[in-house]
């Protein structure tokens, strides 16, 4: 079994990153935006792990683990904020959240 070349992994990673980025810009629900950001983080993770394999060093694996941990913390905070808003207004469309303008 031959491994795919590094370029293939990076291509997938870049595509994932772009999908996530477009998702954040296009979707209007904070939940969907959060999921899109998660896709972007994991695109970076994929690149880290692929590069770590390429270089034969552990740093990339460690970095990917830390990113997963941080992402869990970040999602916990994000969901808490979304729940807080949802309790008040029973809608979480970002276009409706616009008390602050200018």
């Amino acid at each position: 079994m031959t491994a795919a070349p590094i370029a293939a992994y990076i291509l997938v990673s870049a595509v994932l990153f772009a999908i996530g980025g477009i998702g954040v810009l296009v979707r209007r629900s904070p939940l969907a935006m959060l999921m899109s950001v998660e896709v972007m983080w994991n695109a970076a993770n994929l690149a880290f792990v692929a590069f770590a394999r390429q270089h034969g060093s552990l740093d990339g694996h460690i970095f990917a683990f830390l990113v997963i941990t941080v992402a869990a913390a970040e999602v916990a905070i994000g969901l808490a904020i979304i729940v807080l808003i949802f309790r008040k207004r029973a809608t979480v469309d970002v276009d409706d959240i616009r008390a602050l303008r200018g």
């Binding site: 954040v24 959060l34 950001v37 970076a44 970040e74 904020i81």
Partner: peptide
């Protein structure tokens, strides 16, 4: 909070992708 969070999370992802390229 929600605006800061969504923008901040996206910026972290952008930074992280840059860091992965540097590592690569």
């Amino acid at each position: 909070a929600i605006k800061y969070f969504l923008n901040g999370a996206m910026a972290s992802a952008v930074l992280l992708f840059g860091l992965s390229l540097v590592y690569g």
